[in-house]
Amino acid sequence: MNYLHSDKIKELEVKSDEIRKLMTGNLFAVEQECTTCSLGVVDFLTLLYFHVLKHDPKDPEWKERDRLILSSDHICLALYATMAHAGYFPVEKLKTLRKFGSRPQDYPTRAFLPGIKKNSGLLGSLSQAVGMTIADRMDHKRSRDKFFYCLLGDKELQEDQNWEAISLAGREQLHNLVAIIGRNNIQTGGLKENTIPFEPVVDKFEEFNWHVLNASINDFDDMDNAIGQAQSVFAKPTVIFVQ
């Protein structure tokens, strides 16, 4: 990954604004739910698709690409706009959101959108990311050629399957797995503190052999530094908690 210099940050800021415009101009007319969540991750997806990820929009099935596993797929509006801006499909297609057979569906659907490797709609993608990382290790041992980034929300940590995955990833020392967990402390039904408590979550991850980092998801430089650190961690998966 290249150093994120000031010119590159300005370039990313411009792209990020353009992606937000694509969302407000094309997608929000159809979808009014989860709009703020989607807007909140645009900076992060911009950083990934235009700086961090090893990928090729012209060859979405390129085997050596990095993988982004979107567990919080209710923010897929941001993903669609970012992928369109990156060249995976024409931006005009964004207007066809939810239409039968169109590329952007309610939830990412691999049959309709090149670059999506799994359909989603149910939570639990961290386990799938663990499986992808283990499969890569079966083929390439412990290489650092490829990274697997899984974006999920803090409310998902109330689901038991994720803790099985967290335990498994730590045991298997999956160094090229990076989980990015949004901590907005709120979910449908109220504040997180009034639902199932999950603190001290940092201690829990460290007990499961994870490297824990914190970063601001809307700060390109901060986020880039965290991902850079995650890529250099030895024999541990990394979790980056983002506000």
């Binding site: 799938q128 499969a135 890569d136 083929d139 995955a165 498994l168």
Partner: peptide
């Protein structure tokens, strides 16, 4: 042995782990 993975009793995640492997061509 390199193509065998022991998931112990993490039985719920096991199928999602398998899906991840399948999307990688397994």
């Amino acid at each position: 042995p390199g193509r065998f993975f022991k998931n112990d009793l993490a039985e719920e995640s096991m199928f999602s782990v398998a899906l991840g492997m399948a999307t990688m061509g397994k």
